[in-house]
Amino acid sequence: MVESDVSMSRSSESTRRGARLRLLQMHYESCVGHIGGNLSCLDVLLELFHERMCSGDQFVLSKGHAAGALYITLWSKGLISEAHLSTFHRDGTLLSGHPPASGVPGVTFATGSLGHGLSLAAGLALSSRWLGSPETVYCLTSDGEWNEGSMWEALIFATHQDLNNLVVIMDQNGLQGFGSTQDVADLSPLAEKFRSFGLTVLEVDGHADNILPAPNEIPDHRGPLIVLAKTVKGKGVSFMENRMEWHYLPLKSEQYAQARLELEQ
């Protein structure tokens, strides 16, 4: 893949706005949904890739339906070109609706069926035990994804193996496929559940100026670090915010115009 002609330096407000606009444009031009859950995690991804991840660090997108947000983030880092971005979700693209198995720098695994990413990330994190590399592995999950038993299998494993080079970030937007997380399978109190494993849990605002702790600010911890990022599904577009239907809907032209207007203001 050709490198991008656009590279943004950090996850500033203007970067966030530019990324949101480009994400909406990409989804609108391709007539693709899944916008709400992309907008909820975009700020986390931008900060992670621009300000937190170091050389050698790895990222696994367990909530594969946020592929658009990942592509936009990689575009903002110069890893995906504008030309490639314009192929999103079209015939012959590398940028499928969920991340592909190969061909896109920064995409480690094909994901999309929920409940896979944490085990994959745990394997990457575990490999450093024998390969001696000090990388941190970041894994972004959705909140509804924790309905999957495999997530808990992975958590038990990562905790028992004391994978403290693994950071698990949950995009806690409170809405899943056909209802709210509270109504479908309430896991509250979520932080307490993770803490009962003996894990360190950070509860953060997923849209704050600084969302994730800097590497030197991460508290000492055993096992994976859990970051519960409270987010808003459809963040930044008034008629999408906290609306479940924007898990699915593509934008109509008038909606796209309104969304652009809101974001440009």
Partner: peptide, 18 residues
């Protein structure tokens, strides 16, 4: 452990790392 889904997923991560 008795967790075959995780077993396969972890093995994929290990193989990806070389």
């Amino acid at each position: 452990g008795v967790a075959e889904q995780n077993l396969v997923g972890v093995s994929a991560g290990l193989a990806k790392a070389g």
